[in-house]
Every structure is written in C-alpha cells, then in structure tokens.
Amino acid sequence: MIKYPLLEKGATIGITAPSSGVEAELHHLVKSACNRQSIKGFKTICGDTVWTQEKAKSAPAKQRAAEFTQMMKDNEIDLVIPPWGGELLIEILEFIDFNQLEKKWILGYSDTSVLLLAVTLMTGIATAHGTNLVDLHGEYSDETTAMWEPVLSTKTGASILQHSSKIYQKEWDFNTCSPYVFHFTEHTYWKTTPNEPINVAGRLLGGCIDVIRHLIGTPFGDVQHFSEKHIGEPIIWYFENCHLKTTDLRRTLVQMKLARWFENCSAILFGRSDANMPVEDYTIEDVYQDLRNELQIPIIYDIDCGHLPPQLTFINGAYARVCVQQGKGTVLQTFSP
C-alpha cells in the first residue's frame, strides 16, 4: 500500500541540503525562492546545511542525515525541498532511520532522486520527483513547473493530469537576471519506440539514472520487495540522464535488467538529455531500440524530466496512465493506495 502526503494551504516548507549546499555567491537564489514561497502563503525554515558547501557536499554525512531526519519528524514542517541536487547524497542513507520518517512530501530531482527512491522503496511513502527550490526563485513560473503545487495537493484516491510542455531550456544561465527562472528556446517533442502512439499504465518509479543506479544491490534498492509489499500493478520506470555517455547508460540499463528491476514493467520513459552523445556509431536511439528489443515494452523518450527543464512532477508509487501521440504527451496520475 502506498501512503500519500497532502500539501495544504499555509504549509511550512523545510529546506535542507542532503547533498550539496549553496555557495555564498548564490545564497540570493535561496533567499529569493523562500520569499516567493512566502508571497504564496507558505512558511519556510532553512537548515544550517543549506548555506555551506565544502568538498562536494554541504556537510558531513551524519550531519546531513540528522538534519533531514529532524525535519521529517518535526510536526511544524509539512514538506521538505532541498535547494538542489549534488553528488554525494548516497553517503547519508546508512545514517537514516527510515522507520522514524513521518508521512510528508519530499520534492526534488538530480541527486535528490536517490533519497526519493530510497524512501519510497523502504517505507511505501510516495515521494515527488520535480522542481528543486532554486528553480522557484523567479517572479514568474512556467505552467509545467507550477504543477508541483496542484500535484502535491491531490488527495488520496484522486487524480491529476499533466501535459507535455511546449518549449524547453537547452542551457543554464544563473548570471542572467530575469523575472523568469528558465530561458526556453527549443520545441518539446516526445518520441516513442516503436514510432507509434503509446498508451500505457503502471506504478511510477524512477529518478536520475546516474545516481539511482548505485542503489542496485543495496538494502535501499530492493525493487522486488517493494513490488510485492506495496503495489500490485506493473511498474513504469522514468529516468533522466545527466552525464552518462551512451555506452555507460547501456551498461547501467543492462545491470538494472540483470538485477530484475525491469520485471513486471509496462514501459520506460527517458527525459531529454544533452549527455546523449554517440560513442563510435552507437547512438542513444540504438540504446532505446536495444532495450525495446530485449524487454518488448514501449520506450518513450525526450519527455519533460530532468536537467533540461521544465519538468513534470512524477510521484513515486502513484498509478499513472501515460499517453503519447504526435509528439505530445499526457500523464494522468491517480493516488491509489
């Protein structure tokens, strides 16, 4: 059974950095994002880890784990959002007592997806793969990113529909002042293998494949146990590739298959990525076709997920129906227990 938190008006957002903190020269992004949330009626509480960054992490692993756990146990905090991702979140997992975690939303992506997937697999609590806090610092937000609030406000048993974006951002630029967070220049087009309309359903699981792959073979990545204990439907995996070249991505997908992560899987979704460069003549399309041939399931790619925003808010554990036709996509998520 999946347990869904509920975001309500006037909620308090706890901000902690379980992976990377924010360098001093970018503190203004956090402060601006907190101010934007206050204008919308939310309260914000920032932990100490948010403001520090040394040796590729915000603080030692035990300190990061303790601050995260404290926020998850604090009755005054309703939602936890890291400022952004990073590199070494996996260090904190062994120091978290998952039995102490209260039912509340955790929202983020990139390295944060290690924590999201581990929490859902270990506890059955739904987690939210979507915007980071710093993505919310602008005066305006695009309609795709803004869906994080309606999605997290969906009640158990209810459904929420999201649409593919119209345009997306190809490059990041934190130095350009703009009332908009993102700078959209490219047209969104969802693709499929086979190249035909797709309509699939299942329970969502996923994250940044660069980092969640390291959960394979650990107590925090027992997909089979989760499937047997918490869900009865097939899984729809969603992945986004931040840095892996095509051959490394292929090795990772084969490892996931051998670890039985793809058993009872109805489809796999891939976010668009600027890391998908060919190795020799082995292209990203070859990777997707190989996976399709082996698993005999649809592959949907270049979706709104990951480091080329905007991105949809995917709920780990939710039942979803994903439809793609002529480059456009919809994701209908139902918060089924």
Rank of each mutant, 00 (worst) to 15 (best):
I2V: 13
K3G: 07
Y4S: 12
P5K: 06
L6E: 14
L7F: 13
L7Y: 12
L7W: 04
E8T: 13
I13D: 03
T16S: 15
G21R: 01
E23C: 03
E25Y: 04
F42N: 13
K43W: 05
K43L: 05
G47R: 02
D48G: 08
V50S: 02
K57C: 05
K57Y: 03
A59I: 00
P60A: 05
Q63L: 04
R64N: 00
A65P: 06
A66F: 07
E76Y: 03
I77G: 05
L79I: 09
L79P: 04
V80Y: 02
W84R: 06
G86E: 00
E87L: 15
E87N: 14
I90C: 08
I90W: 03
I90D: 11
I92D: 00
L93D: 07
N99W: 02
L107D: 01
L115A: 03
T120I: 10
L121N: 05
M122A: 10
A126D: 02
A128H: 09
G130A: 15
D135A: 11
D142G: 11
E143W: 06
T144I: 12
A146R: 14
V151K: 09
T154G: 01
K155D: 00
L161I: 09
H163K: 14
S165H: 02
I167Y: 09
I167K: 11
Y168R: 08
Q169T: 04
E171Y: 07
E171K: 14
T185D: 12
T193I: 14
E196M: 14
C208I: 00
I212C: 02
H214C: 09
F220N: 14
G221T: 11
S227W: 02
I231F: 05
I235P: 06
I235C: 11
I236F: 09
H243E: 12
L244P: 04
W261A: 10
L269V: 10
F270L: 13
M277L: 12
I284P: 03
L291S: 06
Q296R: 13
I297T: 07
I299P: 05
L308G: 02
F314W: 14
G317C: 15
V322Q: 10
V324P: 09
V324A: 13
Q326V: 04
V331Q: 10
S336I: 12
P337V: 06
